[in-house]
Amino acid sequence: MAVFNLSVNGKKQQVDVDPATPMLWVLRDHLNLVGTKFGCGIAQCGACTIHLDGTAIRSCQMPVSAVADKAITTIEGLSEEGDHPVQKAWLEHDVPQCGYCQAGQIMTASALLASNPNPSDDEIEAAMNGNICRCGTYLRIKAAVKTAAANA
């Protein structure tokens, strides 16, 4: 066990956990931030995507000890009112079916648009390819990314 000081969604947080604990479980088990989802645990599905200093990463593969003072953003902290352009576009296209993968999809998409405000179809496909949606909402995801790009 060790104490870690983290910056999560703009707030200072302290946890006392095994240093190898992935951020996914620190968020879910210890910080009550359950929007970040567990899907595979091996960086293959994207359900656990969060931002680390603005870059999309798979939190299931990020030990808390490697985070240091980098800023963590989760789906709960993407916007104050749920009105990030990506979230709004997701609602406009009524993307979710079961909804389980969508936080991860949104975190990947918002990081993509932050670094590339006008991605091509190929760039969207490449960026979103790591996020599985078992319900098959891929077409709406792509359409929503484009809408978000247009409205950002």
Partner: peptide, 12 residues
């Protein structure tokens, strides 16, 4: 629209 849409996209 999906009645849970807002909750889903905000991670509730």
């Amino acid at each position: 629209k999906n009645v849970d849409g807002k909750k889903i996209v905000t991670g509730k």
